[in-house]
Design a protein around this nucleic acid. Structure first.
Lengths: 302, 302
DNA sequence: ATATTCGCATAAATTTAATCTATAGTTAAT
DNA sequence: ATTAACTATAGATTAAATTTATGCGAATAT
């Protein structure tokens, strides 16, 4: 089998496409590189480079081989990274971005468990609204983003985590389950702009930005909104997992296509060195909230 | 940096937990194994095994290291696999399971492109309804499953692909957009049991298995249902991407929480040797259907 | 207590592999 | 033809992996 060193040589030569330049980057002489490339090709049984062209080019086989070699190098880097962390007793840092309406219950619920699962990891958690979160993610400032789906971006890996019913807080209403009609003559209380819950709330209530609401207060957190509803009536939407005062009575909203729900997803770089820790976190979230509820109705929740 | 050979030694020793037995499996003598393990540990700067216990055990560092080594071995196997394929001019086989309501349009749309993207791959495509698909997937009989989400299973990797609006075929109805009320006094035509579209259709129509429908025919494919609707009236639900006769007029269904839609996902084993080809297929699907449509309402679509 | 056995480590010799210096072969441009 | 730019090959050198033989320590048996 071919050695890691040879793999590195192949990778560097595939970038430089010239033996001399590549050999310098490998810190060996040109004949060494030639020999090792040749040996690698002999071991594998197929040429990796086509030397008949100028400059050098990859064979079809070489093109298929490269992504695998890169993957091995990423894993190899993870080993180095692991050693350094151990050495300097450096804590691995994982930066997590979470939208507020998830963070408000998930952090209290799971932070303790996360610290137990990953005692050597420094968790840096930041509340970000969806748009900011995606932006921060793109700038590689985050290792993991937790938000409401759907989200289609082939550049990041998306892990569906669980679905969460959206309940209504409307103390005025008498019954157990509300219909959509029951909301029409009530006053909605909205989260401030940028919260994805707000967007969906507005779709629900058939509002738009122009529609002036009687009370034009837009709360930054759910507790506040719930408080306002308690005092002044109306209603607000609350994710099922939220921690609220125990004597707050939430009601299900029955729509013809099921109970409204959102899907919570995790996004992270496919090549992240911190993959292992990230997957531990995601699994812990799935286990905590992942009980499938029947009859939910996933909304487009941006 | 530590060699692949050393990694293999570490892995085998971690399984056997005894130098002599492990060295036999490595086809080297015991001192060789001892030396190489020691050298690996020196290179990395930390012990991998705790020799003070009987039998041998892994250190905390070793426990973190192992998954990385396994990943490298998987990639290493992929190299061998690639070489053999090249040798025997063996075509790589990818077994794909697709639910019928997706297959009916996706295969005609994309099969040609897939063959172009992966000329050396033998695609084996099978129509399976969701339940059968998941079962076949679990038995490792499939490399890739394409179905409607949501699906939460930490054992497989889930890739969200696109969301697809569900339209109504109801030629009796006059307007452009239908409301839920408009469906109430019309006759629904259902797919046969096991199709996930059927389940959601029934939720929509507020039917249950007991509710006898006037016409108790349950079609196995959408074309047939559409045909029946044309002849006998009533309505049926149709995924937006379906290929139907051009003069079939489909209508949107407006519900308070948005237009009904389903999310199409791909599931596959995280460690599949065919990962590269599978990712090519998934990307091609995302590109073809992945235009985000606003205001969709993702349904729980099992 | 003292052999005996089991399991791992160490030492020295041997084999194998990687690298270097020096040089020769190829191709394309002048 | 000559040169310049690259790549391949040869032979010597150095480094690394492996083997055989042996030593050390702890548990077990006599």
């Amino acid at each position: 089998m071919i050695s890691i060193q040879q793999m590195q040589y192949v990778l560097i030569l595939s970038e430089e496409l010239q033996f001399l330049r590549a050999s310098e980057r490998c810190f060996v002489t040109q004949p060494t590189l030639s020999m090792q490339i040749k040996k690698a090709e002999e071991t594998l049984g197929h040429p990796i480079f086509d030397r008949s062209t100028t400059p050098l080019s990859l064979t079809a086989f070489g093109k298929e081989l490269l992504p695998i070699l890169r993957e091995i190098m990423v894993e190899n880097d993870r080993i180095k990274w692991l050693c350094e962390r151990q050495n300097n007793s450096f804590k691995e840092e994982i930066k997590i971005g979470i939208i507020p309406t998830i963070a408000s219950y998930m952090i209290p619920d799971l932070f303790g468990e996360w610290k137990e699962l990953l005692p050597n990891v420094q968790l840096i958690i930041e509340e970000l609204r969806t748009e900011e979160l995606l932006l921060t993610m793109e700038n590689k400032q985050l290792d993991l983003g937790l938000l409401a789906g759907p989200h289609y971006d082939p550049r990041v890996r998306t892990a569906p985590l669980f679905q969460e019913e959206i309940l209504i807080y409307a103390p005025d209403f008498e019954g157990e389950t509300m219909e959509l009609l029951d909301l029409e003559n009530r006053q909605p209380w909205l989260l401030s702009k940028g919260n994805c819950l707000r967007t969906q709330m507005m779709a629900f209530c058939k509002l738009n930005d122009q529609t002036p609401t009687e009370w034009n207060y837009q709360g930054g957190n759910l507790d506040l909104l719930v408080d306002m509803v308690t005092r002044f009536g109306g209603y607000t939407l609350v994710p099922a997992n939220s921690h609220l005062n125990a004597n707050i009575q939430l009601k299900r909203l029955h729509s013809p296509s099921g109970f409204p729900a959102r899907e919570v997803i995790g996004i992270f770089g496919n090549r992240s060195l911190k993959k292992a820790s990230i997957e531990t976190l995601l699994r812990s979230i799935q286990l905590r909230y992942g009980q499938q509820v029947e009859g939910l109705n996933l909304l487009n929740w941006k």
